[in-house]
Computed example of a mutant assay.
Amino acid sequence: MEENDVAIDGTVAEGFVAEGFEPVRDAFVRNFAELGEQGAAVTVYRDGRPVVDLWGGTKDVDAGVQGAPWESGTAQVVRSATKGVAAAVLLLLHQRGDLDLDAPVGSYWPEFKAHGKERTLVRHLLSHRAGVPALDRPLTPAQAADPDVAPDAVAAQAPMWEPGTDHGYHAHTYSWLTGELVRRVTGRSIGEWVAEEISRPLGLDLWIGLPEGEAGRVGRIGRISAPAAPGGLRVRPRRNVAEAYADPESLTQRAFGVIDPAPDENDPAYRAAVLPASNGIATAPSLARFYASLIGEVEGGGRLFTPETVALARTEESAGADRVLVVNTRFGLGYMLHGGASPLLGPGSFGHPGRGGALGFADPESGIAFGYVTNGMNKGVTADPRAQGLVRAVRGLV
């Protein structure tokens, strides 16, 4: 399949699509024309090779049409799409024999056993079943970034339900659950581990804890007001969902409000922190290449997951009503699975969205890996209409 360089309307989008993948280009352009996209990029791999690599708009969400253009190497905060990278670290440690998914967390992190968490297993952290999605006392941004203070707060927290018996999205506490476990097992921060064991070998522009020298490549993110998507993608939330997000005492708001006040995601200090639930930074090609490496060999690199580890990642561990998101969700070990809350390519897909836009996933059956990053944040937590338009375009081709 021959790849051809293309430029669409000059200032709207640049990059290339392989022959047959033109519908993805069309969907990408529609995001700018119809859905309020300001700056974004999308990359698709198939069988270890890129078949789509497009970017367009401005690097900074608030720059306007005269702002610096988004370039091929522009990186962006991907919010909870970081969780898929963090999950890979724990699964790779398991694959290497260094971490037992069925061991109590307290066998690696003794302080975590407090307040009835003795039987919390490593797999419960990855499948959002640990019972600690919120903290009785929120953390300041400085405390959240402190590698000692934040894990201690999670270890001291009493669970909101008996660990392992139910699930609820650990929006922020996932940072310290996974990060501290990796530090106890390896002696390295999860950001260091990703840099040394994943990003460097695969040639990825992907960081958890942005190095100072890379700061100039990262655009500013912000909220956008997108019009309703065609085809009914944006739907009015059910009353109980809306109420949960509006109620400051709900578990939903407490989970998303673990860091209070909410950090400035454009602050260099925040971007330099190691928060594997929320502050990863990546380019679209690197996010797609990362997922491609989970399911097969990538051009000029290697493979991360064995087939057995792929099976672990996408075998359902949690399903049904989510105590935090207040909708039905499906999780494997660290990854969201294809379903109504997070539509991916097909039943075997696994990956993770970022609140407001970003999305990365892999689909082993088709050999597709997908990465989308944006500087314009929508209100939704999952199933962003811009990402979904791109996913539907890919789905129609495989």
Rank of each mutant, 00 (worst) to 15 (best):
L359C: 09
V398W: 10
V29Y: 02
T382N: 14
W55V: 08
L206F: 00
L99I: 07
F331T: 01
V12H: 04
E365K: 13
P227W: 06
D47Y: 05
F256V: 04
R234V: 14
D363F: 03
N375T: 04
A75V: 04
A215R: 06
R220K: 07
S107Q: 08
A158T: 06
P201M: 00
L233G: 07
E212F: 00
D166K: 08
Q76Y: 10
E308D: 13
V185H: 08
G213C: 00
A68T: 15
A273F: 13
A246K: 12
R239I: 01
D166I: 06
G334E: 01
E111Y: 14
L397W: 02
A145W: 06
Q388P: 07
H338T: 10
V6Q: 12
R49L: 13
S318E: 01
D47V: 07
D247E: 08
L390K: 04
G389P: 01
D5G: 12
G131P: 03
W109G: 15
A244C: 13
L294C: 03
E22F: 07
E180I: 01
N378I: 03
W176D: 05
R49Y: 09
L35H: 08
A87H: 13
L121R: 15
A341M: 05
A75C: 13
I224C: 06
G15E: 04
D102K: 10
A246S: 15
A87G: 15
V298C: 03
W55A: 11
E22H: 07
F28M: 07
E192N: 00
D267G: 06
T178V: 14
L181M: 03
N266S: 12
